[in-house]
Simulated assay, not measured.
Amino acid sequence: MSNIVLATDGSPFSDAAARSIVEGRLLKAGFTVHVVHVTPDVTGQVRAFVSKETIDEWHKEESEKAMQSVCDILKAGNIPFEAHSLRGFAPERIVAHAGETKAEAIVMGTHGRGTFFDAVIGSVAGRVLAMAPCPVLLIKGERAK
Rank of each mutant, 00 (worst) to 15 (best):
A132R: 08
M131H: 10
P133M: 01
I73Y: 05
K65P: 01
E61D: 15
V42R: 12
G44R: 12
D118N: 15
A125E: 06
S63P: 08
E61C: 00
I139E: 06
V46Y: 06
T54G: 02
H84T: 07
K52Q: 15
K145N: 12
G112V: 09
G122M: 04
A83F: 01
G122E: 03
K102L: 09
K65E: 14
V42I: 13
V22C: 03
E92I: 08
A98W: 10
K102V: 03
L26W: 11
E61K: 15
I73M: 07
G109K: 01
S20I: 02
G24E: 06
N3H: 15
V124W: 06
T39R: 05
P135E: 02
L137W: 09
K28Q: 10
S69M: 11
S2G: 09
E53C: 01
G112D: 06
R87K: 14
T110Q: 04
I73C: 06
I139S: 05
A119Q: 09
P91G: 11
P40D: 14
L129M: 14
V38M: 01
K75D: 13
F13S: 10
R47C: 10
T32D: 00
P91V: 09
G122W: 05
M67N: 06
R127H: 11
V120F: 14
D72C: 07
A17R: 04
R93Y: 00
V46P: 03
E104P: 00
C71P: 00
